[in-house]
Amino acid sequence: MSGWFAPGTWNIALVGAFVCAVIVFSVIRSRRGAMVAVRPLPPLLALDRAVADAVAGGRPVYFVAGSQDLDNMQTVAALAVLRPLARKVAEAGGRLFVPTNRSLVMDNAREICRRAYLDAGRADLWRDDWVAYISDDHLGFVARVDGLIARERPGLCVLMGFFASESLLLAEGGHHVGAVQIAGTASAVQLPFLVASCDHVLLGEELFAAGASLEGDAARLGSLRGQDLCKLAAAACLVAGSLVATLADVTGAQPWLFLRDAFLNVFRAG
């Protein structure tokens, strides 16, 4: 097997395998009936009320799945939120508009929404042009969507996925027409802008848990528990690593130095 492994990647493979094993174990456990309690996410709790209010006011609901293609995990996570949202809007008898800036996202979003309206028994309401391709150019996309928001005055704007500078342009567009705004992104740079301008925000990892949390099937909730266990392990490693590094520096004793080097080797970036 010599010549197979890329040098400097064994530690990432080790940590990755551990994380995957914990998540798979949690999924299997919850499939076998173990109860999984998941902290309710406030932005998702606000979704039902916001959809009901928007539809009751005769205003549409807007959903933007970020500005990236399907090869970005944030877009995949955003589409996982779209299905339950589309179903809620369909059940309430409302109009859901999904502007997209990638054709593959458009194709998937259209199928998701069409299916959701069908499942809710409101296929008669659905129109294919409610999911539209606007432009790959992110500023062109924003110009069109902000224009539509200003003219159609949606009651709820949901912004999920990866955003660059368009996050604030879209969020402020929605704010100026008085729409309830629920956002979620794992883009650390854009989070402060969304927090400042939206009513509710899913922070970082919460975006990846949102779809599972909304639909609540046991296996997916189990993976969230596995994710939390890994986070607990990461926090424990951080505390232990800090203690070991401090003790190694203060005492200079060989066992602490050895442990510190071991920590550094396991957790160094490839």
Binding site: V19, I23, L207
Partner: peptide, 13 residues
């Protein structure tokens, strides 16, 4: 760290 774990969990699923 949370985002990385979220991405891995979604990928595993």
């Amino acid at each position: 760290i949370g985002i990385a774990l979220g991405v891995i969990a979604l990928a595993v699923r």
